[in-house]
């Protein structure tokens, strides 16, 4: 076998191994995040009921994000059938998360927007779950 053939094979194997390592590492990272989210689901219990309920998780937008549009899509998950109240300084919005997931378009005011999300799960004796985000809609016009 010639020298350049050996070099070519070695380089091919090294590149292949590096690429495989990066892909596998990235996949494992994604799996860890998913497992963490699944573990969190069993933490919250309804007041006095002892029944495990899904926690209120807001996946978007990110707290403290700066935007240049006057509305934002609020996404997340909660206990199935929960009644949601989304409140900002200018608007009250309500929705029912029939299957647990929710997407709500929230209008934004110029400047700081405090988005307060409350989830009223069914049959938990009034146990309310809350999250608060601050989103900044900034434009010079």
């Amino acid at each position: 076998m010639k020298k350049e053939t050996g070099v070519a094979i070695s380089m091919g194997i090294i590149f292949g191994l590096v690429f495989s390592f990066v892909v596998i590492l990235n996949t494992q990272k994604n799996q860890t995040v998913t497992q963490k989210q699944q573990t969190q689901k069993k933490v919250v219990t309804g007041a006095g009921t002892g029944v495990a309920i899904e926690p209120l998780i807001v996946s978007a937008p990110t707290d403290g994000v700066v935007l240049d549009t006057n509305k934002v899509s609020l996404k997340g998950t909660t206990e199935k059938g929960s009644f949601l109240v989304v409140q900002t300084q200018t608007k009250d919005l309500t929705a029912t998360a029939e299957n647990g997931a929710f997407t709500i378009d929230v209008p934004l005011s110029l400047g700081e927007n405090v988005i307060h999300i409350s989830s009223y799960p069914k049959g938990t004796g009034g146990k309310v779950q809350e999250k608060e985000l601050k989103v900044y809609y900034l434009t010079a016009n």
Partner: peptide, 25 residues
């Protein structure tokens, strides 16, 4: 072995490492 064959071998070597990894995940 000429340069063309060397290149072909290196491509095969890359595929041999990458394909199993991609199939696995």
């Amino acid at each position: 072995m000429n340069k063309k064959q060397s290149l072909l071998i290196s491509v095969v070597a890359v595929c041999l490492c990458v394909v199993p990894a991609v199939i696995a995940i």
